[in-house]
Computed example of a mutant assay.
Amino acid sequence: HLGPIARGSRRFAGVKYHRITGRGEEKGLYDREAAEKAVEMHAAHFVKQRRRQLRELSALGFDPIVVVPFDAELFGHWWFEGPRFLDLVIREAVKNDDLCWATPSEYLATHPTQQAIQPAASTWGENGYLAVWLDQSNAWIYPHLHIAVQRMSEAARRHAEDSSPLADRVLKQLARELLLAQSSDWAFLIKTGTAKEYATKRTLDHLGRFNRLHDQFAANHVDEKFLRDCEWRDNLFPNLNWRYYI
């Protein structure tokens, strides 16, 4: 029944009906059963390769660790089966006691002597540099963000001893709007042109709400109706600690 929908005009619906079936224009419809089989195979292969890697490293005479960092944005967004892959990897790994899960801090607690390095500045973007996020198309964002960061810090320091519920609400919302304006996705989407108008609007909307609320707060004349609207519209991080900006 997805055929008529999936073959229609493409739009940002949030639901992907197609699977990756090659570089051509025609894509097969998503097949959950086939995807489940593929992710089971991929998880088993991943764990098998990590076991082999650890055996080879152990042969060198030390207790090795394999760091497995993932870009969490991939799971569910670009890779629908990503959460299932993680689930299966963990289940596969604990079948035997030759693999031990640990956080970096847990490993360092038992292996305190390690080499220290300073990673070079790099990104996953084109050519490995920052050019995707700092380009002629999106460079206009950063002066506004820098000013907003400065205003946020000044407001936080100015009200560091203010215990009023209203001040706490305003400062939390200012921090939310700033964090949302700073999302690297906006500059990325503007550069790639994938959703340039949407990304531009989101950047300007968050900066606009930040500046309006900041100016009201500085003038000691907060429009609580506007504040409530901001809190409803941009309501992530309910326990955000604005004091980090002091």
Rank of each mutant, 00 (worst) to 15 (best):
L2C: 13
G3Q: 11
I5G: 06
R7G: 14
G8F: 09
G8M: 10
S9T: 10
R11K: 13
V15P: 02
Y17N: 03
R19H: 07
I20G: 13
E25N: 06
E26C: 01
G28D: 14
Y30C: 06
R32F: 11
K37G: 11
E40V: 02
A43F: 08
V47W: 07
R51H: 03
R51N: 01
Q53G: 03
Q53K: 11
S58G: 02
A59W: 14
L60W: 09
P64C: 07
P64A: 06
V66Q: 14
P69L: 11
F70Y: 15
D71N: 10
D71R: 10
E73I: 07
E73Q: 13
H77C: 03
H77E: 11
F80M: 08
F80T: 04
F80G: 04
E81I: 02
R84D: 15
F85T: 01
L88T: 00
I90S: 08
E92V: 01
A93N: 02
V94H: 11
W101C: 00
L108T: 01
H111F: 01
H111L: 01
H111D: 01
T113W: 14
Q114Y: 08
A121E: 11
G125A: 15
G125E: 14
N127K: 15
G128P: 06
Y129A: 06
W133Y: 10
Q136S: 10
W140R: 02
H144V: 07
H144R: 14
I147W: 09
I147Y: 08
V149G: 04
A156T: 09
A156G: 06
A156E: 07
R157F: 08
E161S: 13
P165M: 09
P165Q: 07
A167K: 04
L171H: 05
L174Y: 03
L174P: 01
A175C: 08
E177R: 15
L178I: 02
A181W: 03
D185S: 07
W186M: 13
T192R: 12
G193F: 06
T194A: 14
K196D: 12
E197I: 04
A199K: 02
A199P: 01
L204F: 13
L204D: 10
D205R: 14
H206G: 05
H206E: 11
R209M: 10
L213G: 00
A218Y: 00
D223E: 08
D223H: 08
F226S: 04
R228L: 06
R228A: 09
D229G: 08
C230T: 11
C230V: 14
N235G: 04
N235Y: 11
N235A: 12
L236E: 15
F237M: 15
L240I: 10
N241K: 13
